[in-house]
Design a protein around this nucleic acid. Structure first.
Lengths: 336, 336
DNA sequence: ATGCTTATTGCATTCGAATGCAAAAAGTCG
DNA sequence: CGACTTTTTGCATTCGAATGCAATAAGCAT
């Protein structure tokens, strides 16, 4: 409980220099002679001094803190992205504040407000949409925002996504090529750009092939919903039953496969082919062995960090980037 | 890019009061008349004013920020804990800074140092050990530290774990009761208290039953290591092969099951029973249906937050808590 | 109204470090 | 060695909000 806070003034006293000298030694690019620098460093070491980041941020106007807002973590895609984003930013000398904030708009506003209160230099939102009002506030405060894995029509926002339309198209084409003619799409949440874009691509490819989907249902990016939806698909009369399902993300695809195999007693891909989206690590585990469209997380993360830093350090304008990913063929879907 | 920072002085000017008045309106418990409060609030609203948390923290000495350090996120137990911890703290009015920091000691020191620079009010480490030196620094700075899911012999540290020894014992007893006599233990990382304690409990129960484990191998909490270890266990001559494996956590147990089924062509639990530890959500998915010892995450999180807040708000001393969890019987192990 | 208590308010200072400015020291050149 | 340039250094101020203290206003009883 002995609260010892060492200040630059104390270091200065011990080193026999002024407080400004101490500050200069700890400020990269400031002028200080070799001799003073050494004495200050020694004194600082002796006292265990470290500059107070709050005080520094207060006067410089830069905190080197980046706010990272993540919706949920139960879909494995997020923890992976989170970890990569975190590491990438740390490498650039930024400190990351991660906030968890469901998908509720109020919660997100609240969290964003708090981030602004703490004077972060920039904000990254992962799979989250933000209100116009908030965008304005960030813009007014001069704080850049980059949306990761979600798009939004606002020129003030940067965004980094994969090419979801083309991905959806590719998934459909792959299933069609394998000879499937009764294809259903358990869509990603239609309130999100990713969900809509993937569905759009799917539709385009089906149209181009002159095919009609057996079903198009919103799975809400939820395991439970996806499972229920799958049950429904197979309770109807036989001709309506799909022989292939394109699922809006891997997380739901696992639920779909579980339902097919363990509740409906069907085999994958024998009775039904399943294709997912994301290529999370779990998709490669042999228990699922899921054929899926890969989102190149690493490259998406790099692009996100680059865009953000560019805007923070001055010369950047908001960018909208799409990074394409390949179809990863595994064993959950028939091959044509 | 138009950087508008609204200060309390500007609000004061507009409201026709002093800066102190504005501050008082935004400081709970400070004295301000109804009339001024209203005028200040109106002015603040009009200008979009929000108190600068850095400045406030600088003078009050309390930032209401809690540092949360997490090792990895690929084991599903962590994201779940992270999400719960995050929510619980946010509810108490604290803001959480999550830092990701592998398991390397240097990285953890670095991160802890940064947290201290930012004047956090407290620190939670999840599944991470911390050096003596760091503990001292936190103690000196009066910053409480709570270790989540890891123990360490240091009275200055609080810790919250499940009762790992008893859990290990229970797992072994369950397998013995089912008639298994060739039991192996793929241990959790022996550099961690959880890994050691679970192994210790396992040993105790085996001893008590007069049984010798077929094998005791460190799986390092790694999927790859666990898979390799499993291969090894089944390449020897027949009598050495285990008919049951207790695995140090679920994350490794999935790898063990995958290897048994898909590489070795064995059935679970027909040929081999598998018991895990944690009860992560994935354990309940039918693809694995894993029998496992549950770590009561929710209660562990509550205990962690309580311990931390108690210490921050004054009257708390470091505590060491163990929270017991049940054996969850599913389909991956034979039933006696 | 008068005297006294209590609630508001403003002034000035504080937190800890960074920085413009001017003085002092060190370095360079002829 | 003197004149002049370049570095170092300290002083004083600044960032934005909170707070002790003293002054002022409001509230109340007589």
């Amino acid at each position: 409980m002995a609260n010892e806070k060492v200040t630059s003034a104390q270091v200065a006293a011990l080193a026999g220099v002024s407080q400004s000298a101490v500050s200069r030694v700890f400020t990269p690019g400031a002028s200080a002679s070799r001799k003073t620098a050494e004495r200050v460093r020694a004194a600082a070491e002796a006292l265990g001094y470290r500059p107070n980041a709050l005080a520094r941020g207060l006067i410089t106007g830069r905190t080197r803190m980046i706010g990272l807002i993540v919706a949920y973590l139960d879909n494995q895609f997020y923890p992976v992205a989170l970890e990569l984003l975190s590491r990438a930013l740390q490498e650039k000398g930024y400190h990351i504040l991660v906030f968890m904030a469901g998908n509720s708009t109020e919660k997100i506003s609240e969290v964003m407000g708090e981030l602004l209160d703490y004077q972060v230099d920039g904000i990254i939102t992962a799979s989250v949409a933000i209100s116009n009002d908030l965008t304005s506030r960030c813009a007014a405060a001069g704080i850049p925002v980059v949306m990761f894995n979600r798009g939004q029509d606002d020129v003030r926002l940067s965004e980094v996504t994969s090419d979801n339309v083309s991905g959806g198209r590719r998934a459909a084409e792959f299933l069609l090529q394998a000879g499937h003619r009764r294809i259903a799409h358990v869509m990603g949440w239609q309130g999100s750009s990713t969900g809509r874009d993937r569905a759009e691509g799917f539709r385009q490819a089906m149209d181009a092939a002159g095919q009609k989907p057996v079903a198009l249902i919103d799975g809400m990016y939820s395991r439970e919903t996806a499972a229920a939806v799958t049950q429904d698909l197979f309770t109807g009369s036989d001709p309506a039953r799909p022989d292939a399902i394109f699922v809006g993300n891997d997380h739901m695809a696992f639920a779909v496969m579980d339902t097919l195999r363990f509740d409906l007693g069907l085999t994958v891909p024998g009775d039904v082919s399943v294709v997912g989206y994301d290529d999370v690590p779990l998709a490669a585990w042999p228990a699922y062995d899921l054929t899926t469209i890969r989102q190149p997380v690493r490259r998406m993360v790099d692009a996100t960090v680059d865009a953000l830093i560019a805007q923070i350090e001055g010369d950047g304008v908001p960018r909208k980037l799409q990074i394409d990913g390949p179809l990863i063929i595994r064993g959950s879907a028939r091959i044509g």
